[in-house]
Design a protein around this nucleic acid. Structure first.
Lengths: 182, 182, 182, 182
DNA sequence: AATGAATGAGATTTCATTCAT
DNA sequence: TATGAATGAAATCTCATTCAT
């Protein structure tokens, strides 16, 4: 439980005593649960990634397989933005600057880009994605973009309305943005 | 001189004594040149941002104003990738994970998205950019995406060829990806 | 029971939780039996000292008072070596390095040197011990020597046979080694 | 230089801050010189062992090779006692209880018993040392005994006079104590 | 009586920064 | 100006002990 409480605070210049105090436990208790500060950070990031991942998965499941590409993309983007809005701290923690932890790849990763890659590859085989686009790169690019922009949007003082954000992200999704021209 | 030598190493968990040693100067010397560790970091990031910025600017200048949007976009993407390849360490330093410093905005920012925003707005007014897209968000999104993907690509072991990278980024640039449909 | 189990392990850098775990009891249980870590250590040392002491006493009793000095000395050395061999861990614990506890005196003490001192004094009065020797010092010296050497011998990889050990210690016992010359 | 200052204090329950303070240096300075508390302890023990060793060596050198065994033994014992008296703290540190450090062997070791062993073996071959005695064990035994007794003597409140101590140790030295009988 | 999670004082260690040379 | 040993505040971590179950 300490995990969530602490995930909701920043974990960067923060030190173990402060973390423990914030979680209302003794320092020793903290070390009883996590090997060190970074173990906690990793756990919190993993929890956030899992949280978002399952939000996306359940959205994908609820919008039937018969949905159009546009509908699917919009659904996923909305799910991502929605989860970010309801879990701003975990989202920032996992996808904001300095995710020293995300083993996998660039910013915003940790979140697997594999699912998107597969779908893009399928679209490409069906001639519905520009042949010049590399599905792997494009998937990765979209994930980075989406998380980066949402992080910025969460923090921005004069932020565009949520619908504009969703609309823009949808429009930039490779499956939509990179349809074959002509 | 120290700037570059140090920029070429990581600067995060690294401590000032190590930085100084790596730069082959005494600790004291280091503090003779920079107020503190963060001043150095800021300087290195700024240098990288400036470097990239001017690479982009000179490319924009060389491709005349009469060039098509596609040519301009491709030129800028190529310039960005080229600079990143010839200055991988500064690029990573400035745009990789944990840019604690970039005052401006999200990941990859530090690099101003203003220029792109202006151009996108112009295209939109000319009816050549989908009306649903927010130029500010889209500009920001593209910058984040581009830098994130390039950082990943620089580090990736099995990376797609450079042409594929450029092609994919070009195709995802809002000015191209978000042309009005129909 | 806990006493012996724990005595058979080292007790120095070892912490109380580890001790308890090793003894297969809960930490709390441990503190139910001993006031603190040192109480346990003291108890274990005392038990070892008592054990050795009574082994020596019963040997002294069994070899009648009419036995020669040589026989008595050999009997006691054999008893000490025998007990050490059958209780190596307690022996090490009580007489090995770092007996922070032994209130009494130098290494190997805890074991009283008084008995030996009395006998040596008697021999000296009878003109059968060199007059230059101080019975107190000599007694103390023999005890230290005996325990130190046995501890070493217990741990040594290429150790001389037990008989050689006994023989050497006997020969170094003041009552034998320091007979008046000529 | 910190070495000596600190060696002259106890180093057991003492913590690094206290050590540093006692040596009149900052904590960091301490860690600049020694990896940790134990490194200092080891260094101090080594220094003490070396000090005693060279005191013995120079005494051995000054008493010509033509000196009798008795004279040689007395010389070495006097040298050991003398060094211990003039360097009581290092002596206690190196040879007192809990020398967790002495890699070599039993208490009092660290100090090599090899020299004595060699001489005893020579005496034995010459028929001037009881055949039942093992030179290795006897050498080791003497070293342990000597250091243990000196440590006790340094600390004892009612201690026998120094001459008595020397006399007793000389009389217990195997080369003298274990001459063949008859 | 037995348990072991929780505690926090204190030990250990790091590192940004200073300053005498 | 260059240097790096020295510094100590602050961070990390340990472990003897308690106490609710």
């Amino acid at each position: 439980m300490g995990t969530r409480l602490i995930a909701e605070r920043g974990v960067d210049g923060v030190n173990s005593n402060v973390i423990a105090r914030a979680a209302r436990v003794g320092v020793g208790t903290f070390y009883g649960h996590f090997a060190d500060k970074h173990a906690l950070h990793r756990a919190a990031v993993a929890a956030a990634v899992d949280g978002l991942q399952s939000a996306l998965a359940s959205r994908a499941a609820s919008s039937g397989a018969q949905a159009s590409v546009d509908e699917q993309v919009r659904g996923l983007v909305e799910a991502a933005v929605g989860w970010a809005q309801s879990h701003p701290e975990p989202f920032r923690l996992a996808f904001g600057r300095s995710p020293r932890s995300s083993a996998s790849g660039g910013p915003g990763l940790g979140l697997s880009s594999h699912g998107i890659e597969v779908r893009l590859a399928a679209l490409q085989r069906a001639g519905r994605l520009d042949a010049g686009v590399d599905p792997g790169l494009a998937a990765r690019a979209f994930i980075s973009m989406q998380t980066s922009v949402i992080v910025w949007w969460l923090e921005a003082s004069e932020r565009p309305p949520r619908e504009k954000l969703v609309e823009t992200l949808v429009r930039l999704h490779p499956a939509i943005a990179c349809r074959p021209i002509g």
